[in-house]
Deep mutational scan, measured.
Amino acid sequence: AEKTGIVNVSSSLNVREGASTSSKVIGSLSGNTKVTIVGEEGAFYKIEYKGSHGYVAKEYIKDIKDE
């Protein structure tokens, strides 16, 4: 049951290796980017990222929809 969301930041949002603010940053997404959410862990969504997965803070994702 995948969902999509939109990155809701003015600059960019860090994509992390794990569901923690201390996890390594593996990339970033600019505002209004559409993401595919494959799961959630605590305050983070697990998303599809560059052929693999990454984690982003839930508070910066809006317009969550079921695909």
Rank of each mutant, 00 (worst) to 15 (best):
R16V: 08
N8R: 06
K34Y: 09
S30F: 09
G51Q: 09
V15H: 00
E41F: 15
F44V: 03
Y55F: 11
E17H: 06
K65R: 15
A19C: 04
T21C: 05
S28F: 10
Y45F: 05
K58Q: 09
I37L: 05
T36P: 04
G5D: 02
E41H: 08
V38P: 00
E67W: 02
G39L: 05
E17G: 10
Y45V: 04
I47S: 00
V9Y: 06
Y55V: 01
E17Q: 11
H53E: 09
I6F: 08
K34E: 08
L29C: 04
V9S: 05
E2K: 15
A1C: 06
N8W: 07
S28H: 15
G5C: 03
I37Y: 01
V15E: 00
G18H: 09
K58H: 03
R16Q: 12
A43Y: 08
G5V: 03
S10R: 04
G27F: 13
V38C: 04
K34T: 06
H53T: 06
I61F: 03
I64M: 06
K3S: 13
S20M: 09
T21V: 08
G5R: 01
I64S: 11
E59K: 11
T33V: 14
E59I: 14
S52K: 07
E2Y: 11
K24I: 13
I37T: 01
R16H: 11
V9G: 12
G42D: 15
L13V: 11
H53G: 07
T21P: 06
V15D: 00
A57D: 12
V9W: 03
E48W: 09
S11A: 11
G39C: 04
E40W: 08
V25C: 05
G31T: 10
E67K: 03
K58V: 05
T21S: 03
S28V: 12
E2G: 14
V38Q: 08
K58D: 01
F44E: 01
D66G: 11
E2Q: 15
K46R: 09
A57P: 14
S23E: 07
F44I: 01
K34M: 11
K65D: 15
A43W: 07
I47N: 00
S11F: 13
E2D: 11
E17L: 06
S20W: 06
K65Y: 11
T36F: 14
G39P: 00
V56T: 02
V56H: 00
V35R: 00
K24Y: 07
I26G: 01
N32Q: 07
I64P: 07
G31Q: 14
K24R: 11
S22R: 14
S23R: 04
V7P: 02
T21K: 11
E40F: 06
I26E: 01
Y45C: 03
E48T: 14
V15Q: 00
E59A: 10
Y55E: 00
E17R: 05
F44G: 00
S30H: 15
G18T: 13
G51Y: 07
Y45W: 07
K3T: 08
Y60T: 04
G27W: 06
E17N: 14
N32Y: 08
I61W: 02
E48G: 05
S11T: 10
G27C: 03
S11P: 15
E59R: 12
K62G: 13
V35E: 00
G5T: 03
E48P: 08
G18R: 07
T21W: 10
S11C: 05
E48F: 13
E67P: 14
A57H: 11
S22C: 06
K46Y: 09
T4S: 12
D63Y: 11
E41C: 07
G39K: 06
Y60D: 05
A57Q: 13
Y45H: 03
H53Y: 11
T36W: 12
V7E: 02
A57N: 15
R16F: 07
L13R: 02
I61Y: 01
L13M: 04
G5F: 06
G18K: 09
K24A: 11
F44M: 06
K3L: 12
T33E: 13
S52A: 14
K50T: 06
T36V: 09
V56P: 00
E17M: 09
I6A: 05
K34L: 12
K46T: 04
A1I: 07
S28I: 09
V35W: 01
G5S: 03
I26A: 02
S30E: 09
Y60S: 08
G42W: 05
V15T: 01
V15N: 00
A19T: 08
I47H: 00
G27A: 05
S22G: 12
L13F: 02
L13E: 03
A57L: 13
V15F: 02
E40N: 08
V7S: 04
S10A: 11
E2A: 08
S10M: 11
Y60A: 07
T36M: 09
K65Q: 14
S20D: 08
S10E: 12
I37D: 00
G39T: 04
G51A: 09
V15P: 00
I26D: 00
Y55R: 00
K3E: 03
L29P: 00
K24G: 12
S28R: 12
T36K: 10
K65M: 13
G42S: 07
V15R: 00
K58P: 01
G18F: 11
V38I: 13
K50W: 10
H53N: 09
A1K: 06
I47D: 00
T33C: 05
V7M: 02
I37V: 05
D66Q: 11
A57C: 06
I37N: 00
N8V: 09
S20I: 08
L13N: 02
K65L: 13
L13G: 03
I64T: 10
E2R: 14
T4I: 08
S12V: 10
G31F: 10
D63K: 07
V35T: 02
E48I: 14
V7N: 02
T4K: 05
